[in-house]
Simulated scan of single mutants.
Amino acid sequence: MDDLATQADRKPRTERGRKTLRKLLDAAAVEFADHGFHEASISGITRRAGVALGTFYTYYDSKDAIFRALVRDMSEAVGTAARDAIEPDMGPLAVERAALQAFLEFAAEHKEVYRIIDEAEFVDPVSYRAHYERIGDRIEQRLKAGASTDGLRADLGEPEAWAVMGMNVFLGLRYAIWAQDGDPDPATVAKIANRLLREGIAGSKPD
């Protein structure tokens, strides 16, 4: 049985178990953010979570296993933040604006997400790639849905979705992780990015 199947079998079936799992993941986020993967320890995670060392092994086999679970958990949290910000009656450009603003606010509140996801490139490249593929897929689906309502071009696909994702990731790095006094707030940054999507950057029509 592979690792993912093994972890799925350990999914808690009680509310108490789900709360314990949540404590472990939240503690792991702080431990990995503070120390990096290689210096972080299982004992550090359990100490932060306030649980016994043996409890850890009820849910995870190793530090690698909880790191992979944490990357996926963070990826899902990013997606949830965007989905929760989208209203059913929004047009496609308004959807992208709301999703970006929600991501910027999420990243500002959970700055550890950048360090952990970036470290996954070297610790667990499969999880790293899967994280961005999930986000790219979500954006592509939104763009195609926007095209079906005549709000966006009909030929939008994966390249455009990854271009939007790249813009969003680096705006988050600059205005959430590297935020400075006097920076525009998330709503303003999202508005500026949305104008770029709507109007492009050309100052005049090409010849």
Rank of each mutant, 00 (worst) to 15 (best):
I139K: 13
K144M: 14
I45S: 00
L156P: 13
G182R: 10
G44S: 15
S148V: 09
I42L: 14
S62T: 07
R174L: 09
R48C: 00
T46G: 08
I86N: 05
E121F: 00
G146V: 00
R10D: 02
E76S: 06
G54H: 11
D185C: 08
E158L: 02
A94Y: 03
K11R: 15
A130H: 10
E96I: 11
D89M: 03
K19V: 08
W162C: 07
L173P: 05
D137M: 08
T149S: 11
R72T: 05
G54M: 07
A49H: 08
I42K: 03
L100K: 06
L53A: 10
A49F: 09
Y128V: 02
I192V: 14
A94Q: 15
R195W: 02
S43P: 02
K191Q: 15
G172M: 14
P186Y: 10
L70N: 07
A202P: 03
G200K: 13
F170V: 06
K63I: 15
L70K: 10
P186K: 10
A94G: 12
L173A: 11
Y175T: 11
Q7R: 15
E199N: 09
D155L: 06
A94R: 04
A94L: 04
A108E: 12
V78H: 12
A98Y: 10
D118F: 06
V164M: 04
S41G: 12
D137Q: 11
G36P: 04
P159F: 03
L171C: 02
T188D: 13
A179W: 01
E87C: 11
A85W: 13
V71I: 15
A179H: 14
L197G: 00
L171N: 01
Y175H: 13
A190G: 11
P186A: 05
E158H: 14
A147R: 04
D118P: 04
P159I: 00
P12I: 09
G136M: 09
E121Q: 11
E133I: 09
W178V: 10
G36V: 02
V123I: 15
G17T: 08
E96H: 12
D34A: 15
G151W: 00
F103M: 08
D3L: 13
N168L: 00
E158N: 09
P186G: 10
A179C: 11
L70A: 05
E105P: 13
F67L: 06
D2P: 14
I116A: 02
F32L: 06
E160C: 03
A147W: 07
F122D: 12
F67M: 06
P186D: 10
Y57W: 11
D183M: 07
T6L: 12
A187E: 14
I201D: 05
R83Y: 01
R134I: 03
I86F: 07
S148L: 15
E199S: 10
A77C: 04
I201T: 13
M90Y: 15
A176D: 09
Q141D: 04
Y60L: 09
P125Q: 03
E119G: 00
A107I: 00
P12A: 04
R47M: 03
P12D: 00
S43A: 07
T58W: 10
K111M: 11
A69E: 08
S62G: 08
M165H: 04
G151A: 03
Q180C: 13
